[in-house]
Computed example of a mutant assay.
Amino acid sequence: MSCEIFREALSARIDSEQGPLPDDQVDRHLATCQACRGWFDQSRLLRRSMLVRSAPEVPDLTALILENSPPPPREKWGLRVALGVVGLVQCGLAFAQLLGVETGTHGGHGDAAAGHLLNEGAAWNLAIGIGLLWAAVRTKAAAGQLPMITGFVLVLSAVSASDLLGGRVTTARLVTHVFLVIGLALLFAVYRQDRKHSRPGPLVGDALGTDEQIELTVDGSLALAPEDGHDRRARRRPTGHAA
């Protein structure tokens, strides 16, 4: 049998394809034919040289990026401390209500249903205080608490105004709700601060004080990419969705 048919089978083996001859027959021929062994070795080296190449050299831009990148924003503890203080005050007011301290409402406390409603309100105020304390410790929790506490403050404001006009609550009692409004404002401020602090750092173009895309030129220096008339930021996509 001619060596050409074996070399055709060896070529198919290099390309991970099915050859015209069985593998065991090709292996027996390779063991006895030095010419085909040399041809097979050279063919594999040639194919490897076509597939595997050295990576192009990329200049080290670490020093340039670190030099032009702004420092990370410093976290402001004042808002978190203030939120924690308001949370403690809210918890104190809730405990005072649970212990039966005068809260500024009119009417007796002998009715069992009315007493239970007061306890429910105290438990809710205590939960709000604990939530504010937790948001002061873990600022990322502020985002989840904003919708709930905002809705509570809006409804409470409307109900309190109605009760005040109807003479069902004193001004002293309404003053205690001021801490809840302050807590909501601080909660929103902490949420904005955490969102700004957690924002990813600027790109190289932003670090250099420009709004342009930075690219490497052929000689390894930095240059601005050509303007295409569209907003570069609007075209950004998550890395997992990129082609």
Results as ranks from 00 to 15, higher is better:
residue 193 Q to V: 00
residue 170 T to G: 15
residue 175 V to W: 13
residue 208 L to S: 03
residue 199 R to N: 01
residue 186 L to S: 04
residue 238 P to L: 09
residue 210 T to E: 08
residue 205 G to L: 02
residue 242 A to E: 15
residue 195 R to D: 07
residue 199 R to E: 04
residue 219 D to V: 07
residue 197 H to G: 07
residue 196 K to S: 15
residue 170 T to C: 08
residue 217 T to E: 04
residue 219 D to P: 06
residue 224 L to P: 13
residue 225 A to V: 04
residue 239 T to L: 15
residue 170 T to N: 09
residue 233 R to M: 11
residue 193 Q to A: 10
residue 194 D to S: 08
residue 189 A to M: 05
residue 221 S to D: 06
residue 182 I to T: 03
residue 241 H to P: 09
residue 175 V to F: 12
residue 209 G to P: 06
residue 230 H to V: 12
residue 183 G to H: 01
residue 234 A to Q: 09
residue 226 P to L: 05
residue 205 G to T: 00
residue 191 Y to I: 06
residue 233 R to H: 14
residue 201 G to T: 02
residue 241 H to L: 14
residue 192 R to T: 02
residue 183 G to L: 01
residue 213 Q to T: 14
residue 241 H to I: 09
residue 206 D to V: 01
residue 223 A to S: 08
residue 201 G to I: 00
residue 166 G to E: 05
residue 194 D to L: 00
residue 175 V to M: 06
residue 187 L to H: 04
residue 232 R to F: 14
residue 211 D to K: 13
residue 173 R to E: 07
residue 203 L to I: 03
residue 195 R to I: 03
residue 191 Y to A: 14
residue 171 T to M: 15
residue 215 E to Q: 10
residue 218 V to K: 11
residue 240 G to W: 11
residue 202 P to Q: 00
residue 194 D to W: 08
residue 204 V to C: 03
residue 177 H to N: 06
residue 175 V to P: 02
residue 173 R to P: 03
residue 202 P to T: 02
residue 233 R to C: 10
residue 200 P to Y: 07
residue 239 T to M: 12
residue 222 L to I: 00
residue 167 G to C: 04
residue 206 D to N: 12
residue 237 R to F: 11
residue 234 A to M: 05
residue 201 G to S: 13
residue 181 V to K: 02
residue 205 G to D: 02
residue 171 T to F: 12
residue 178 V to G: 05
residue 180 L to M: 07
residue 165 L to M: 14
residue 171 T to W: 15
residue 167 G to R: 04
residue 204 V to T: 03
residue 196 K to Q: 11
residue 190 V to S: 09
residue 226 P to N: 11
residue 236 R to Q: 11
residue 225 A to W: 06
residue 198 S to M: 10
residue 207 A to P: 03
residue 241 H to E: 12
residue 207 A to E: 02
residue 167 G to Q: 01
residue 212 E to P: 06
residue 211 D to P: 00
residue 224 L to F: 14
residue 181 V to I: 11
residue 227 E to D: 15
residue 172 A to W: 13
residue 221 S to K: 13
residue 237 R to T: 13
residue 224 L to I: 07
residue 169 V to N: 07
residue 204 V to A: 08
residue 191 Y to V: 03
residue 211 D to R: 10
residue 168 R to E: 15
residue 235 R to S: 12
residue 165 L to E: 10
residue 172 A to S: 10
residue 190 V to G: 10
residue 207 A to Y: 04
residue 194 D to Q: 10
residue 223 A to F: 02
residue 242 A to C: 11
residue 223 A to Q: 09
residue 232 R to Y: 11
residue 233 R to Y: 11
residue 209 G to H: 04
residue 193 Q to R: 07
residue 194 D to M: 05
residue 215 E to R: 14
residue 240 G to N: 14
residue 184 L to W: 05
residue 219 D to E: 05
